[in-house]
């Protein structure tokens, strides 16, 4: 006891409970590294945004449509944080409602992206059309994969909550998936600004 007391008086300013939630630490580490992942793709896009190789360029973007789907994804962050809030208050029914709502909004965003891709392909912009096309599809495609993974995790959690197996001490928990989901949203905020709005 005395030893520890002395220790606290000297160098013991580091409290071990300060950073105890190990999963959350690892999650923030992962999100930090994701910036480099998306940063590389965004800068590739910026490098090639005018390299259209004779194919369509940024004029084919349908800003009103993409704005609507951006708004949907933005609002899914609201439903996600409400799910987290309900989970903290141990209200499983509310948690489930908001989880399902978030997954639904995410799926809507994905549907919008599939529609957008189909339109662009009809208008002649494909992966092999130009460096512009390659970097556009890669960037938005990888973001879409992130959204799809998130929808899957949200759905799984909603199903688990039915049988009361949604714990906060497992890898799959509301807070961690929430962090991931918000991160996917902020990346879209950047993509929406840099890819769509700046092109006009």
């Amino acid at each position: 006891m005395t030893d520890a007391a002395i220790d606290a008086a000297h160098g013991g300013h580091e409290e071990h409970h300060d950073v105890k939630p190990v999963r959350k630490t690892a999650m923030w580490v992962f999100l930090g590294s994701e910036f480099v992942f998306f940063g590389a793709m965004i800068s590739t896009f910026l490098l090639y945004r005018n390299t259209t190789n004779g194919g369509p360029g940024s004029e084919i973007f349908d800003i009103p449509f993409t704005s609507a789907s951006s708004f949907v994804l933005l609002m899914s962050s609201l439903t996600m944080v409400l799910a987290h809030n309900a989970f903290e208050n141990k209200d499983m029914r509310q948690t489930r409602v908001w989880l399902v709502a978030t997954a639904f909004l995410g799926a809507t965003f994905l549907a919008g992206q599939i529609f957008e891709f189909t339109e662009f392909i009809h208008e002649g912009l494909t992966l092999p059309t130009s460096p512009f096309g390659s970097s556009f599809y890669m960037l938005t495609g990888f973001h879409g994969i992130h959204v799809a993974v998130g929808v899957m995790l949200l759905t799984a959690m909603a199903i688990l909550s039915l049988s009361g197996r949604l714990y906060d001490d497992r890898g799959l928990n509301v807070e961690l998936v929430g962090l991931y989901w918000h991160f996917v949203d902020i990346i879209w905020i950047v993509i929406f600004t840099v890819v769509y709005l700046l092109q006009v």
């Binding site: 923030w28 930090g32 940063g39 590389a40």
Partner: peptide, 17 residues
């Protein structure tokens, strides 16, 4: 710590690219 992890990733990625 979390703020540091997040901001280092963000600022580092932006600076490099």
């Amino acid at each position: 710590l979390y703020k540091m992890l997040f901001l280092v990733g963000l600022a580092g990625a932006m600076a490099m690219f």
